[in-house]
């Protein structure tokens, strides 16, 4: 039976080398990087998301050709950078993972779509739009996916209440966020 991927743990790409490569290509548009639990995390400007993912996909020594996960995040405490999108990419051949994060202001919730690089981003971006109201420009079919179509709110934003706030029997002052 054929083996398309021969995984080799010793072959795992080095985080510093990846970062050096990306820095020489993109320079100052990489804002910040860290390695929580050994996973290289890069914060970038949203304009270069598509270029960066394309570069990570195509470059022979990088080859991050699998989009593991894409999700949104809302942090009201970061003024003018409240909404974010988190990409988890993977190079299966060398078993390396990378996380890319980008933030934008709540007043301009627009990100470029990556559906033309990864088909799997289609529903993930729809889900992120559905819950955070992040508009992915260029997405072929950007509409709600899990919530009903006539919903107006974006429920995973922090200001959206979990339960009906008119109820008096639920007091969350002592316990609960």
């Amino acid at each position: 039976m054929p083996h398309t991927i021969l995984s080799d743990k010793m072959n795992r790409l080095n985080n510093t080398e990846i970062l050096e490569k990306l820095k020489s290509k993109f320079g100052t548009e990489i804002l910040f990087s860290e390695e929580p639990f050994g996973l290289l995390t890069i914060y970038i400007e949203k304009q270069i998301i598509k270029d960066m993912l394309q570069y990570l996909y195509q470059e022979t020594h990088l080859g991050f050709q699998f989009l593991t996960d894409l999700c949104g995040i809302h942090d009201p405490s970061q003024v003018n950078a409240e909404l974010g999108v988190v990409y988890h990419l993977q190079n299966m051949r060398t078993n390396t993972r990378i996380r890319i994060k980008s933030f934008t202001a709540l007043s301009n919730p627009k990100f470029p779509t990556v559906t033309d690089i990864f088909k799997t981003a289609n529903w993930m971006e729809r889900e992120t739009y559905d819950f955070f109201g992040i508009i992915f420009e260029g997405h072929p079919n950007l509409k709600r996916i899990l919530n009903m179509d006539d919903m107006v709110d974006f429920p995973l934003r922090k200001e959206f209440p979990l339960e009906d706030q008119t109820r008096l029997d639920k007091d969350d002052k002592m316990f609960g966020r």
């Binding site: 039976m1 398309t4 699998f66 299966m92 990864f118 799997t120």
Partner: peptide, 19 residues
């Protein structure tokens, strides 16, 4: 196509990718 669609698990392995 399966990798591009984000397949994992038995469905991906059925295509010949031993992930």
């Amino acid at each position: 196509s399966a990798l591009n669609y984000g397949f994992t698990g038995p469905n991906l392995r059925a295509c010949g990718v031993d992930y």
